[in-house]
Amino acid sequence: MTETVPPSTDARLVDLPVEPIRTDTFAPYGTLIESTYDGKPFGDDEAQLTLDRGTPRFYIMKLERREPVFRQITRHLAVTQCLASAGGRPWMIAVAPPDAPDDPAAPPDITRLRAFRVEGHQAIMLARGTWHAGPFFEDETVDFFNLELADTNLIDHHNCALDRRFGVRYRFVTG
């Protein structure tokens, strides 16, 4: 669950290269959602949502720009989460696979941590249990469409302090 842990002052800073998001490279973490023509039949290439463990909540969250460095990663065990920038702005997210999504004590596999750039016309669905840090972006503020459960931020916010557990913090590196 959510816990406030002071940052470690001796954690090593690791560069995390940001790559353009693609369906195949993002698949271990969730689903890349791209526009399709109206009337297209539902298929395996679309988000398979898990929203049956509570009341679904769809809202627009306003986020402020942060330094593209993180020391903590989070996951939600009860729900898939869908994110998209409401204003069509590009953004970045770091993810680690949803290993052991039913074990709240399971740590993230930081050897499989990746960073993706999501274009403003794209959305993502994080698989249930996917570790994530972000969104991060260049603008001062960006609104995001967010689909999760009504109590996700209260009771389904499982964090790992990467600096304390693994002695690292990560910096997004673009270009």
Rank of each mutant, 00 (worst) to 15 (best):
P17I: 07
P17N: 08
P17S: 06
E19Y: 04
E19P: 04
E19C: 13
E19R: 08
P20N: 10
R22P: 01
T23K: 14
T25G: 07
F26E: 00
P28E: 05
Y29H: 08
Y29L: 09
G30A: 10
G30W: 01
G30D: 13
G30L: 01
L32G: 02
I33M: 05
I33H: 00
E34G: 14
S35R: 15
T36F: 13
T36E: 12
Y37I: 07
D38R: 12
D38W: 12
D38L: 09
G39F: 04
K40Y: 10
P41V: 13
F42I: 15
G43S: 14
G43Q: 12
G43A: 12
D45G: 11
E46P: 03
A47Y: 01
A47I: 04
A47L: 10
L49V: 09
L49H: 05
L51R: 02
L51T: 04
D52W: 15
R53T: 09
G54R: 03
T55A: 02
T55D: 04
T55N: 03
T55E: 01
P56A: 09
P56S: 04
P56T: 01
R57K: 10
R57F: 01
R57M: 04
F58E: 11
F58D: 05
Y59A: 08
I60L: 13
K62L: 13
K62G: 03
L63G: 00
E64Q: 07
R65G: 07
R65Q: 10
E67I: 05
E67C: 03
E67H: 03
P68F: 07
P68Q: 05
F70W: 07
F70E: 00
R71D: 07
R71W: 14
R71N: 11
I73Q: 02
I73T: 00
I73H: 02
